[in-house]
């Protein structure tokens, strides 16, 4: 049993004391949270990439495992959807410009770039709707989830990507809400992170489209 001598921590000379919040309001300071949301989103993107890599390698292995690998013609509407998603990235960029340009963004934000955000959100919905349409068309050809390995992977990949896009839509909506309410709660970093995520959704979709075209 070790001797437990209690030693008070030396009080440091003021010069060296770290930044503190006014003693008046005892509150929790989330220091660095600004930067955190950026690296947070990149880490997230990393993880998502990893799981889609897993799905893709599963696709390759499955293709090699049996002779039942067929071919499915992609519904043309996919290309329209692609366009919508890419456009949405562009509109988001415009919104981003507007927001970051405005110095008065903190603490009051006003309604800067709101129009562009609306557009982005709308295009996002168009994409999701379009994906549903694509499913409907496949189903019309009698291609369902379990019809053959190709259709299985088609549905799985598109569904997974769709879910992630929906998550992005929710995030965007929240950001917009905060801008409208112009609460101090609005943080550029959150917006930036959401934007990064949204662009990544576009990139991810392009990759998936490539896989679907060449493999299925």
């Amino acid at each position: 049993m070790s001797s437990t001598i209690y030693r008070p921590v030396r009080t440091r000379p003021p010069a060296l004391r770290g930044s503190t919040v006014p003693a008046a309001r005892v509150a929790k300071v989330l220091s660095g949270a600004e930067g955190a949301s950026q690296s947070g989103i990149w880490v997230g993107i990393f993880a998502i990439t990893m799981s889609f890599a897993a799905f893709t390698s599963a696709l390759f292995v499955r293709q090699g495992s049996a002779a039942d690998w067929t071919h499915i013609a992609l519904p043309p509407v996919l290309y329209a959807n692609t366009l919508a998603l890419l456009l949405s990235s562009a509109t988001l960029q415009m919104a981003r410009r507007a927001v970051t340009a405005d110095p008065s963004i903190q603490p009051r934000t006003g309604r800067v770039g709101l129009g562009w955000l609306m557009a982005t959100l709308a295009l996002g919905f168009v994409f999701v709707a379009g994906q549903f349409e694509a499913w409907r068309q496949l189903a019309a050809q009698g291609l369902y989830l379990a019809t053959n390995p190709n259709s299985s992977f088609y549905y799985v990949l598109t569904a997974m990507h769709g879910l992630h896009v929906l998550a992005g839509i929710v995030a965007l909506a929240l950001v917009m809400g905060r801008i409208v309410a112009s609460r101090a709660a609005f943080r550029k970093s959150t917006f930036e992170a959401t934007a990064t995520y949204w662009h990544f959704m576009g990139v991810l979709w392009l990759y998936l489209l490539l896989v679907l075209r060449t493999k299925l």
Binding site: R25, A27, V29, S31, G35, R187
Partner: peptide, 15 residues
């Protein structure tokens, strides 16, 4: 960086 972010930090009260 902690410095600057601490200034414009987003604060919330004890639970």
């Amino acid at each position: 960086m902690e410095e600057t972010s601490a200034q414009q930090a987003h604060v919330h009260a004890p639970p």
